[in-house]
Computed example of a mutant assay.
Amino acid sequence: MNRYVALLRGINVGRNKQIPMADLKDLLAGLGHTDVSTYLRSGNALFTSDGTDEEALAEQISAAIAARFGAQVGVLVRGRDELAAITAADPLADRVTDPARYLVVFLSAPVTQAVVDGIDRAAYGTEVMVAGRREVYVWLPDGIADSKLTQAFFQKRLSVDTATARNWNTVTKLTTLP
């Protein structure tokens, strides 16, 4: 059995795609997953599964959400070990002064630093981007609200099907939850 985190994109923001976390837990349990819990209303679900294909698990969850709630929701699944490796690798630990302004943008496909380096950094002022394996670490020292480095930006610019961001506080918390 493997422990995973499902990261849902764009739910419970405004009036669109409202999915109560209790209903999400029930949905995941109905798919045969066990030890299901959620964290925050922004679409973080932890579960145990005998499945080993993260992409297939993400597609299964996304299809079940569409069937039950009528919403098209991008879903990414990461193993808890991978999340731990992401936090351990923290390439900006020496620069970040506020974890609420430090994001990890999770991607549905691998990315390289060369691709990230191809983004015109001058257009983004003090903001810093560092590629991981299937994520980009983004430090936004002037705050998130006015940043152009959104998950939609990365999804389009990096030509990936799904991108979803979590701040550093959430990422590190997801690695410690049972």
Rank of each mutant, 00 (worst) to 15 (best):
A63T: 08
T126R: 15
E54H: 07
A122S: 13
V115R: 15
A88R: 08
E55V: 15
L83P: 00
G79S: 13
A85R: 14
A109P: 04
L40F: 08
E55R: 14
A56K: 13
L24C: 03
I65M: 00
Y124D: 00
A131S: 11
L46M: 09
A58M: 12
I86T: 05
A84T: 12
R133S: 15
A123V: 10
I61G: 07
D81A: 14
N12A: 01
D26R: 14
D26E: 14
A29I: 08
M129I: 02
E127A: 10
S108C: 03
Q18I: 13
G125R: 12
D120Y: 05
G32K: 08
E135W: 05
A93W: 05
G125K: 11
A122M: 05
G32Q: 09
L27G: 02
L92P: 02
D50T: 11
G51V: 04
V77L: 02
V96T: 09
F69R: 02
G125L: 09
R134T: 13
A100H: 12
S108Y: 01
L83F: 04
G74R: 06
E135V: 08
L27V: 01
D94Y: 07
S62C: 03
Y102E: 03
I11P: 07
A58R: 11
S108Q: 01
S108H: 04
R68Q: 15
A64I: 02
A109E: 14
L31Q: 03
A29N: 15
K17L: 04
G79N: 07
L76A: 05
L107S: 05
L76V: 01
F106Y: 07
S62T: 01
Q72G: 09
V128L: 12
Y102R: 03
R95M: 13
D53N: 15
S108G: 12
P20D: 05
T126S: 15
V73F: 05
A131H: 06
D53F: 10
E55S: 12
A56E: 14
L28Y: 05
A22D: 14
G51C: 08
E82N: 11
G118K: 07
D53A: 13
G118Q: 09
A56T: 13
V13C: 11
V116P: 07
I119R: 06
P91A: 04
D81W: 00
M129L: 12
K17E: 02
A71E: 14
A114W: 00
D23T: 06
R95A: 13
A58P: 11
Y39A: 09
I61L: 08
V104F: 01
V111H: 02
L46G: 02
V13D: 10
G70C: 06
E54Q: 12
Q60P: 00
V116S: 10
N44L: 02
E59S: 09
L92A: 06
V115N: 09
H33M: 14
L83D: 02
V130K: 14
Q113T: 04
L103P: 04
A122Q: 10
L31V: 03
T34A: 15
P110F: 06
R78Y: 05
I61F: 06
G30V: 09
N12K: 06
R68F: 02
R134N: 14
A123S: 15
L57N: 01
A63D: 14
Y39F: 15
V128N: 03
T34C: 11
V104G: 06
A122D: 12
A63G: 01
G32Y: 10
T34G: 13
Y39G: 07
A122W: 00
V104N: 04
R41C: 06
V36Q: 00
I86W: 00
D120F: 02
